[in-house]
């Protein structure tokens, strides 16, 4: 980690367009995130939220434009990213322990080679499990956990990568409000040292925690969460969808 990298922003996209076939999913996106920001990608279904995240992760390549993570290509910056996918994709019968899942975050680390995880990997895995308050369940079977616990295990796995930015895809999907709140309290604590970027469909919920939002609907507009207004929301979701209102909303700020 050299000094120039320290100054590079965690995520910068310049004139990025992406299409799966003909119609663009994302069109000429420009954005830059600041270090240690807590950002949510919001927008309607099919608007390109997950596509945007996948471009940043390097899973997808932009049709045109450039994506930079700490000044590098997403591929070069892979080791700096801690990724947490949606929980739904896992085979519920896969025989694997909590510890084994978290250890996967140590894959590709330069310290240990071969087919087994080494002592250092295990130390780090235990530390991050402690951070998400699941250390006592380290030996448990992953499939026996509740939804909220599984999400925290996947968060621990992302932390085991020792990342500088966390990218999370719908971390509160299928969780009830209380469990989701607990997860976000944890993320808020982690935000003291990490940049956090997440995709969420639950606008009302996340705006209580994040400080910026990226509104995605083919184009991307960045807002401070304090500027998030009914106008913006109706522009984003269409007039028939009402924004969920709560304390931080200030009306009257106009969309560019």
């Amino acid at each position: 980690m050299n000094s120039t990298m320290k100054q590079e922003p965690p995520v910068c996209m310049h004139d990025v367009s992406f299409s799966y076939d003909v119609d663009p999913v994302l069109d000429r996106v420009d954005l830059c995130l600041k270090e240690q920001s807590f950002v949510s990608i919001i927008g309607p279904n099919g608007g390109g939220k997950t596509t945007l995240l996948k471009l940043m992760l390097g899973i997808l390549k932009p049709t045109s434009g450039s994506v930079r993570i700490f000044g590098r290509t997403p591929r070069e910056a892979r080791k700096l990213i801690g990724y947490m996918p949606q929980n739904a994709q896992f085979d519920p019968h896969f025989p694997i322990s909590v510890m084994d899942v978290v250890l996967m975050g140590r894959l590709g680390s330069k310290t240990c080679h071969g087919g087994r995880y080494c002592a250092e990997d295990r130390t780090i895995a235990r530390r991050v499990l402690g951070e998400v308050e699941l250390l006592p369940l380290a030996g448990r079977s992953f499939s026996s956990l509740s939804g909220g616990q599984r999400q925290r295990v996947l968060l621990a796995r992302a932390l085991a990568c020792e990342p500088r930015i966390l990218m999370l895809d719908e971390p509160t999907a299928n969780l009830d409000q209380a469990v989701g709140t607990r997860l976000f309290d944890l993320l808020k604590r982690l935000n003291e040292r990490l940049t956090i970027l997440l995709v969420s469909h639950d606008v009302g919920f996340v705006t209580r925690y994040v400080d910026r939002v990226l509104c995605v609907n083919r184009g991307v507009l960045e807002h401070s969460v304090h500027d998030l207004s009914g106008d913006i929301m109706s522009h984003l979701y269409g007039d028939d969808v009402l924004a969920v209102k709560h304390g931080v909303h200030k009306l009257g700020v106009h969309h560019e």
Partner: peptide, 23 residues
């Protein structure tokens, strides 16, 4: 099968994550 245990386990459990870890 044993020498590449952790890699094969990761690829079987979560291919996308394994790829993002540079595997």
């Amino acid at each position: 099968g044993l020498l590449f245990f952790k890699q094969l386990q990761a690829v079987c459990f979560d291919e996308e994550f394994a790829r993002l870890r540079g595997l």
